[in-house]
Amino acid sequence: MSHTQHWQHHIDAWQQTGGSQAHYCRTHELDQNQFSYWKCKLAKCNNVQLARPSGFAVAQLAAVPESASSLCITLPNGILLGGIDAMNAPVAAQLLEYLR
């Protein structure tokens, strides 16, 4: 069995388990770095995406304009508590109560 066939066999078997790559490698006494290398190499060679998703999600940040009327409080010890508005006023009140 060639290296390519060896690793393709393990990658196919891992995908069938539904478990983590790390667990599969530990169970079969495989080097995780080599597993990752061959997984990537074979995916590129076959020009296919792996059937197993990465588990990561794409996140997008929405720009929230800061209100020009936001409140800032300077505490006696010099700490500045800023950006207080109607949305976070209850949290700021709790923080001030805690610091009191």
Rank of each mutant, 00 (worst) to 15 (best):
M1R: 14
S2H: 09
H3L: 12
T4A: 14
Q5S: 15
Q5L: 15
H6G: 08
H6F: 15
W7D: 02
W7V: 07
Q8P: 07
H9S: 13
H9W: 15
H10Q: 06
H10W: 04
I11Q: 04
I11S: 02
D12T: 14
D12C: 14
A13N: 08
A13L: 09
A13W: 04
A13D: 10
W14Q: 12
Q15S: 14
T17A: 03
T17D: 04
G19M: 13
A22K: 11
A22G: 06
H23K: 13
Y24C: 05
C25G: 00
R26D: 09
R26H: 11
T27H: 11
H28L: 02
L30K: 01
Q32M: 12
Q32K: 11
N33V: 10
Q34T: 15
F35K: 04
F35A: 05
S36D: 06
S36E: 09
W38Q: 02
W38I: 04
K39M: 06
K41N: 07
K41A: 10
L42H: 02
L42G: 03
A43N: 06
A43W: 05
A43K: 07
K44R: 11
K44F: 07
C45M: 15
C45S: 14
N46H: 13
N46P: 04
N47Q: 15
V48N: 10
V48T: 12
Q49M: 09
L50C: 10
L50K: 07
L50F: 11
L50R: 10
L50W: 14
L50M: 10
A51Y: 09
A51T: 11
R52D: 08
R52Y: 09
P53A: 04
S54C: 06
S54P: 03
S54E: 07
G55S: 02
F56Q: 10
V58W: 08
V58K: 13
V58C: 10
A59Q: 15
Q60R: 08
Q60F: 06
L61G: 06
L61T: 06
L61E: 07
A62T: 12
A62H: 12
A62R: 14
A63H: 08
V64I: 11
V64Y: 00
V64D: 01
P65T: 07
P65R: 07
E66C: 05
E66L: 06
E66T: 04
E66A: 08
S67Y: 00
S67W: 00
A68I: 08
S69H: 12
S69F: 09
S69M: 10
S69A: 12
S70Q: 08
L75S: 00
L75V: 02
L75H: 02
P76N: 00
P76E: 00
P76S: 03
N77H: 06
N77Y: 03
I79Q: 12
I79G: 08
L80F: 05
L81P: 01
G83H: 01
I84S: 00
I84Q: 00
D85A: 01
D85F: 00
D85Q: 03
A86D: 08
A86W: 05
M87N: 12
N88I: 00
A89H: 09
A89Y: 13
A89F: 11
P90N: 02
P90Y: 01
P90G: 02
V91Q: 11
V91A: 15
V91E: 13
A92S: 03
A92N: 02
A93S: 09
Q94A: 15
L96W: 03
Y98G: 10
L99W: 03
L99T: 00
